[in-house]
Each structure stands twice: as C-alpha cells, then as structure tokens.
Write a protein that binds this DNA or RNA. Sequence first.
RNA 1: UCCGGUGUAGCUCAGUUGGUUAGAGCAGUGGACUGUUAAUCCACGUGUCCGGGGUUCGAGUCCCUGCACCGGAGCCA
Length: 430
Amino acid sequence: MQNIRINQIKDFCDNIVKINGWVYNSRRSGKIGFLTLRDGFGLLQCIVVKNEVSEETFENFKKLTQESSISVIGKVVKNDRATGGYEILLESFDTHHLSKDYPITPKEHGTEFLMSNRHLWLRSKRQHAILKIRHQIIKSIRDYFDMNDFTLVDTPIFTPSAAEGTSTLFKTEYFGKDAFLAQTGQLYGEASAMSFGRHYNFGPCFRAEKSKTRRHLTEFWMVEPEIAYCEIEEDMQWAENLLIYIINQVLDKRLNELNILERDIDVLRKVKGPFPRVSYTECIDQLQKDGFNIQWGDDFGSPEETHIANQYDCPVIVHRFPSDIKAFYMKRDPENEKVVLGMDILAPEGYGEIVGGSERETDIEILIERIKEEKLNQSDYDWFLDLRKYGSVPHSGFGMGLERVVAWICGLSHIRETIPFARTMTRLNP
RNA sequence: UCCGGUGUAGCUCAGUUGGUUAGAGCAGUGGACUGUUAAUCCACGUGUCCGGGGUUCGAGUCCCUGCACCGGAGCCA
C-alpha cells in the first residue's frame, strides 16, 4: 500500500492507498458518512459506510471534528458525484489529534476575525488557492530573469539612509546608530548591474506610510531588475515581457486555482503585447478632456490612475513624467528637460500601479544637483556617485510590486490576502 | 493627518418612537436519516450590548467623550 498525495489520485484508481491530512468537513446521513479530507495538495471526499467498516471505525468517524489530523486508508474509485471525480471508500483511519472548537466554521466570517486567525485561515480553500498562485508568480518571475541570464543579487534590508527620500521609513536602532528598513534595493541594484550586466533583486520592502487602503501593506515584496547598457524603451519591453510571461504561466499551470477564486479568465487571456504606451502629457490632455481637474505637473491621484487604466484591456505604460514628481536618480529626457525617462505600468480593473521604472541618470554633476534639490545628504550617496565615476553607462531598471500583481491576477478586492501574513498600519499579529 | 462608517452571544447579524425578561441563523452537544457537497430535520444556552460620563421614572437605542476596527484621500509598489 502506498502513501499518496491527493493531487496524485488519478494515478491510483482502484488501488488501496494511505493519505495523511486533516478533516476539512464531515457529514453523516445515518449509516453513510462523507468526509472531506484536506492534505495541502487538494481536497478529497472519503465515503464511510457503516456496514463496510468495523464498528469501532464508524464510532471514531462520528467523533471527528473539523481540522482533526488523520491518516486515511481506503480504495480509490472514480465517481462523478464527488468533486474532482474521484473518492475513497474508507476502510480504516488513524486519528493523530482531535481538534476542538476550530474557530473558522464553514459559514461566513468577517475579515477582521479572519485576519486575526490568519494562521488558520491559510488552510481555507480560497486562501490556499491565492498562495499557490502567489508561489507560481514568484517562480515565473525568477524563471523569466534566470532564463534571460540575469543574476539574483540580494540587497540589504538594514540601510543607513533613505534611498528615494520620499516615503516614510521604519527606523530602528543599530548598535547605537540609526538604521532604516529598506524601501527599495534599487541603488544597490545599480552597483550590481555594473558587475553582472543584468541584475535582479527580490525581497521584502518596508514603508511606514500611514496608508489604509486596499492597495497598501507596510511590508511587501518587490522584484527589481537593473540592466546595464539599456535605455528606457528596452526597459519597458523587459517589463511588458515579464508581465506577459507571468500571466501565461499562471493560466497554464494554475487554472484550477483561478477557477476556485472565480476569476474571469477571459480578462487575463486578453493580456497580450504590445501594451499601449502613452506619455504623461497625453494622459493629462485626455484627463482634462474627460473633465478631471488636473494641471500639467500634478501627480495622478487614484481616481486619475483608474480612469487612464480603464481605457484599455491590457496594462498601460505611462511614460515621461515631470521630473519634479519623480525620484532624483531618473534621467532627464534629452528632448525635453522638464520630463524624466520614467515609466509606470498601470494594471486594468482599477488595480493601479504595478510597475515603476526608469532610465537612470548617468551624469554625476546632474545627480549631485538633484540630490541637493531634494535636500538629501550627499555623503550618504558617495558610493552611489562612484558608479558614475568608474565606467558610467546608460542603464535602466524597474520595480514590480508582487502583491499588487497577485491581487490583480487573482481578482482580489484587497491586497491583504495576497501575502501569507500581512503587515498593515493596524496589524502586526499573528 | 483628514473625511465617512462600524462596534450587541464563539462567528455573522437583527433589535421599531427610549419601555419592563436581549433576539435569530450558524458553530457546539444529543438524537433521526445509505449519496451528502456550507446537507437537512428535532431538542438543548450563551451576553461587560466597546469603555467612561450625561439626559431621563427608564438607555442596546438619545447627547458628549475616549478607544478599537473598516473604507477612502494624500503618498506609493
């Protein structure tokens, strides 16, 4: 007899097998019982017929509670009445632990309660599906860069100062000095790109912004490629190809999970290149035409972003923003000094900005000037400025927020379900 | 930080114009049922009505205040 996982069930039809798992649900109808078993790889219905098992087995079955841990032995049979098409005719089982008063019942619960029980909520079907898709997206991101000869170089989480100087940082004590949790690995990525040519880093980022919206976490994961000898147009192409690759992989490998989430698959299938590319200036014209009160030079708010994204089925690339509203390291457009060679990718359906990137400034004098304008401490950036002293080259990169991509692909209304243990302004537990 | 909302049983919620003993479904326990999919049916009980202050003969309900949480804005991925 073989120990198997539920996702292998088709290969063991008519065999006696053993499966280790937990009780997802159990029902009884007199002398026949239905036990839904969960093993981390799927759900499987087990049938317990009173006349076909020992009296002791049937009595023990009656005692089973939600989320008790058990090992089931029985025969695999094909049956269309079972979800998944297969079920097990239970012969016997071992109880490892009887669960008592499991808080998450098969009925509805509020988000706050579920988030407080996140360590248990992870076992639910929807949450399991979301995290499987998250895993697929992470794997696809790494595969994409690895296939294209990028090197993963990890960037530090403890940093001495602000990288971008805009967002609020988490401050911590570091052997008598102040340290800050990294909000981006980007500046280190530029150093790495000068060594490896094609670099990416992928790790947690921290922002202490007091944002309480469905799009914000204080701890989130970002992937940041940085490419030497790469200009803005090529940068856009890398980002577009990455998104298309991710979507296709998820559609190919996690269709089952998308269906559990009742995601509209057609919306995802429409995502094909090339993505529309519109300049910031064109967006402002369009927004003004559509009645928005916005002037050239203003940053987009959430409603503006959504309005632009809603014009298209695909993600849309917005480029060449006013330099005043973007980070100091972005390169000025040689054809128009007022704008920088930056680009944002906005996801459809109101999911907002999922990618932000740019071609980087290569001229050390302009960088120093910009650092002064932003009132940053130049000595903090000495090492970064070194990159412009020793073989400076055109280079570009972008950051993609993992959780926003997961939220969009899964069609979730809130980002907190896209990460195993969300950290928000008001939640540090569990 | 600002704007709006919510807070009643383990969970999800109802609770009239202020009225006498605080209500339902689910979960739990016991029972019935050989094809259930959040099974169904019968029985069993649980409350710091978020805290504090006030108005009133009387407050879950009205007023003030504090707290917690939710959503949005700003900022951003």
